[in-house]
Nucleic acid binder design. Structure first.
Lengths: 239, 239
DNA sequence: CGTCAGGTTGACGCGGGTCAAAATGAGTGG
DNA sequence: CCACTCATTTTGACCCGCGTCAACCTGACG
């Protein structure tokens, strides 16, 4: 199942055989985790990074008043917390949204692989910088976009990211999360999420129903979100 | 002026003499840039990273309707766009807020230094992961905090980050930006920024006037913001 | 003294939050 | 197959934080 991770790496940067071999050697152990389970708690000391092989994860931060903000979603193929390699402890928690399969990659294995293959280090560094770019785009959504545009932008993003690992079709994709969880991504209450989903559906832009996103008019949806995919760095490049 | 950068690195991780020497060799050229000047435009291809030696920078993204969201502020000592080392092109623009002095570090010098000193690579990787942590905290602010709490949280963050490089006093610090720019950080209109600043001032928590932040009651301000400094990773650690 | 950027204030409107209740639908056990 | 439970979705009524619009004030600078 590590193929998805390799596919995602290769989509942007070619991999040598030796690099591929090194990547395959990173995962020490795989685990199956049930849905809605916190797997890493804010502040916990970590000696491994988590590769998402299948399922859906989120990063989130809790607030005093019981609310939480989801700061990113992770799709299969993502090294969900490669940043713990240098941070040692995370400023946020991580939880599964659906049942997931994760691979554990000990930090010392990562360090060895990187020292032997410096370019691999740059590729994984790129990966964490991509996470930061996604965070920035979410900041733009949360700070400037209307509720409707925020939802539209999220659907556009997830469509492309899931597409990279073969988990999206041209007309839609599975996103098995609740409207409440969608609200925690978008900084909205579940009630208002429900209202804007209805509006997007009635306008024929996109429908979100029983865990699936189905596009009605992708072009108009992109316009509604003022969406540009630049921040996802889909184009291959030297590194 | 690179001392501030070295001080910031050393505050979290000890540096060997060889590493320090390598850092000193990164900057090829320094430039003075006037206030409110865009120095890197979204999408531009970059062959160097920018070290902020003095002044204040911001990263921002423009929207179709003319608004913009500032996604992070950079303080002296920050490698403002180390992420361009792996991304090659940025998903956002960068501009000075005040007159600034920047050092240009060519990517090939960075690559050499890192291959010779792998730990230095991890230190700079840590730096970009810290940026991502700051982005996440801003997502929390933008998504969940009230306007007042957002401003309070930003003042707390900048106090600590500027303090790390000796640019803050216990009771306040210089933050020479306009209320409009503050609004672009917080996702608020300048009018509303003005109102909440008045409220924070009248409540005796903090005052923001003619480019300076003066704390009235730091403890209550932290409570008001639900602020925790964990995400700034102030504690030294092995890497 | 004029100009102009930025700060300040007030009146008013709207997007999204809050509260409450009902509808739906996926289990689960009898 | 039905009855029951519980999470989730849906809808309506109402409210408030923040945006909008517009005017005026302040201070730096020529």
């Amino acid at each position: 199942m590590i193929e998805r991770h390799l596919a995602r790496l290769r989509a942007r940067h070619p991999l040598s055989d030796a690099e591929e071999e090194a990547v395959r050697g990173l995962v020490e152990e795989t685990r199956v985790v049930g849905p809605r389970t916190t797997i890493i708690r804010e502040g916990e000391r970590l000696a491994h990074s988590t590769l998402l092989l299948d399922g859906l994860l989120c990063r989130y931060k809790d607030l005093r008043d019981g609310k939480r903000q989801i700061t990113e979603l992770n799709v299969p193929g993502d090294f969900a917390d490669m940043h713990s390699f240098t941070l040692k402890t995370l400023d946020h928690s991580m939880a599964t949204l659906t049942e997931s399969v994760v691979g554990l990659a000990p930090h010392d294995r990562i360090r060895d692989a990187i020292e032997r293959h410096p370019r691999l280090g740059r590729l994984y560094w790129f990966g964490t910088n991509l996470d930061a770019a996604i965070h920035r785009e979410w900041e733009v959504s949360l700070g400037q976009r209307s509720a409707t545009a925020r939802a539209a932008a999220l659907f556009c993003e997830m469509h492309l990211r899931l597409g990279l690992v073969g988990l999206a079709e041209p007309g839609g994709f599975a996103l098995p999360i609740t409207q409440n969880e969608l609200g925690e991504c978008l900084g909205l209450t579940p009630v208002h999420v429900n209202r804007i989903l209805r509006q997007l559906r009635e306008d024929g832009l996109v429908s979100f129903r029983s865990g699936r996103v189905e596009f009605g008019d992708l072009a108009r949806l992109r316009t509604c979100a003022d969406f540009s995919d630049d921040y996802l760095y889909l184009e291959p490049d030297d590194i």
